[in-house]
Write a protein that binds this DNA or RNA. Structure first.
Length: 562
DNA sequence: CACGTCACTTAGGATTCGTATC
DNA sequence: GATACGAATCCTAAGTGACGTG
């Protein structure tokens, strides 16, 4: 089936397929939605410098408020954040203000901070009716700006709102944290749409930077963001035909890898012995990417972002070699920050050959030197594409994630839906661990665990009581024990459900399941599993996921094999 | 091949929503 | 009806990888 086209398999999505690189024939939309203008502070809310009230210019005041709003956040205590902020804030000041305000420590944002908190509070305390009015207003904005016509379909746009100005919050030790992210004007925005469509109107008194008609790309609007100088795009929602089709293709490529992964593995095992150092490095990198699901690791511009790495950009300080450790030999200890500054820590026994190679790669190198000095992601991907069309480093993550889920789900049996779901979540969790999808433990974690435990205890007591009553009822009069039996059964069922839930939650404390579900696991595996196990799909996929994976829900038969 | 640009996917945290419980 | 909580959704940063240029 994998050779047949997406459209062929999935009737509902049937549509003409465009020639190379053409993404649409018709595109019409209303342009992005801009955030509201800045509202100046009321006169009674004052900013103080060095103990004296200072009336700031509008531009400086707006930026001051960005900082004041974040005062409860740890960010604002960080040296880098504060320095970047002050530097950018001063750029927004008048000459006079700039002369006066030179030291952030002399700034008192207390009143601005209090006002902000008050506003948040007030919003929370709005009456039901007022909240309803707000909701309807948002609905109207969504209705007007949140959809586009792409060919013959009305499609939901993913991010139709222009990002509001604020202070840049990078992840981890980001050298640019605290910098001012400027307000985007229509004059900064490029519109992309059909020549023969109704061209979106810029807000009154404004012009677009450019209107273009490029149907080889999928974005509807774009602008350049000032902090990193990168481009931001307005694109379609994940439930759109265009995105769904791309997603399907991604999983089909991963399935193709399944059929040639054995050959590729033997090849890189061979390459470990190559006379060429570059080939050996490529082989070891590929081994890591395959076995540990590491990301490719593109080079990054130094000083522009936090110091994170992937496979090809690993440096010697990120691994430690142990001839023997915890009863195993040839152990590689990984410790580095990956995407989003999430720590990757793992101790992995490897083959002698891999181990010897790593020792060789590290010879005569010092901290800061690349582990794979003869390799980059471009070379690696060139090689992979030559082994299989469409194969790149990231395909291994998709493939290994999906195949792991499928294997873990195989042979699971239980007649209880709660237990089936626990098994599913455990399979999902194995994938999340493989891909290192972590999360901060929820703030209320301990508390919520405790309250669940308490519920379990009280239910246990209730069960005991019910059992006793049942016994008594049986003794006294055989006919009237039915309802008591029912109570016992219901109690037992609820207790089991809660215990399973507690286990699930505990195991999930620092692991994020959503990322793999959303991006790595072929949805057809889950859909088929639900059908086979008679588990309602909405126990596994929420509304958003069901929308995104509509194509899979449509086309998947119970006998689907990844 | 080095390098920069561009388009698009992947990611965790923040915010909002909906509902169970008091 | 208020509150508290987990789930869902929003937000936007941070990756990957293709491609063009010199």
């Amino acid at each position: 089936a994998s050779e047949k086209s997406f459209h062929f398999i999935c009737q509902r999505w049937e549509e003409e397929k465009y020639e190379d690189g053409i993404k649409w024939k018709f595109l019409e939309h209303k342009g992005p939605y801009f955030p509201p203008e800045y509202q100046p502070l009321p006169d009674n809310v004052k900013f103080f410098y060095d103990g004296k009230a200072v009336k700031l210019s509008l531009a400086a005041e707006e930026v001051a408020l960005f900082f004041a709003q974040m005062l409860d956040h740890e960010y604002t205590t960080k040296e880098v954040f504060r320095n970047n902020f002050l530097k950018d804030w001063r750029k927004e000041m008048t000459l006079e203000e700039r002369m006066l305000i030179t030291d952030l420590n002399k700034c008192d944002f207390g009143e601005l901070h209090a006002m902000h908190k008050q506003k948040v509070e007030a919003r929370k305390n709005l009456s039901k009716e007022e909240k309803q009015i707000n909701k309807e207003a948002n609905q109207k904005i969504l209705e007007e700006f949140g959809y586009c016509m792409l060919d013959h379909h009305r499609e939901r746009i993913g991010n139709f709102k222009i990002e509001p100005p604020g202070l840049f919050r990078g992840r981890g030790d980001h050298p640019k944290q605290g910098m001012l992210k400027k307000r985007i004007q229509p004059e900064d925005v490029i519109i992309n749409c059909s020549r023969n469509s109704h061209i979106p109107e810029p807000p009154t008194g404004h012009k677009w930077k450019e209107v273009r008609h490029d149907n080889t790309v999928t974005w509807l609007a774009s602008w350049t963001e000032n902090v990193q100088g990168s481009c931001k795009y307005v694109m379609l929602n994940a439930n759109s035909k265009l995105k769904g089709e791309k997603d399907w293709e991604k999983y089909e490529v991963a399935r193709k890898l399944k059929s040639c992964v054995d050959a590729i593995r033997s090849q890189y095992q061979e390459d470990l012995k190559s006379k060429q150092m570059g080939t050996r490095q490529r082989a070891v990198a590929l081994y890591f990417i395959d076995k540990l699901a590491l990301r490719a690791g593109n080079e990054k511009e130094e000083g522009e972002t936090a110091d994170t790495v992937g496979c090809c950009s690993l440096r010697v300080e990120h691994i430690t070699l142990h001839d023997a450790l915890d009863g195993e030999t040839c152990v590689v200890e990984f410790d580095f920050l990956g995407k989003d500054c999430i720590r990757y820590y793992n101790k992995v026994p490897v083959s002698k050959r891999v181990f010897k190679n790593l020792k060789l790669f590290m010879e005569n190198k010092q901290e800061g030197d690349d582990l794979f000095d003869r390799l980059n992601t471009n070379m690696l991907n060139k090689h992979l594409t030559s082994l299989m069309p469409g194969l790149t480093a990231k395909v291994f993550r998709t493939y290994n994630a999906s195949i792991t889920l499928q294997q873990q789900l195989k042979g699971l049996t239980s007649d209880n839906v709660a237990e089936k779901l626990l098994s599913y979540n455990r399979a999902n969790r194995a994938v999340a661990v493989l891909c290192n999808h972590q999360r901060a433990p929820p703030k209320t974690f301990e508390q919520s665990m405790a309250s669940l435990q308490a519920k379990i205890e009280s239910r246990k007591e209730q069960l005991e009581l019910a059992k006793k009553e049942l016994k008594l009822a049986k003794k006294e009069a055989k006919g009237s024990s039915d309802s008591k039996l029912l109570t016992v059964q219901r109690c037992e069922e609820q207790l089991l459900k809660m215990e399973v839930q507690a286990t699930d939650r505990e195991e999930n404390k620092q692991i994020a399941l959503s990322t793999s579900k959303l991006n790595y696991l072929d949805p057809r595996i889950s859909v088929a599993w639900c059908k086979n196990m008679e588990v309602p799909l909405d126990k596994v996929y929420n509304k958003t996921l069901r929308d995104k994976f509509a194509w899979a829900i449509d086309m998947t038969e119970p006998d689907f094999v990844f």
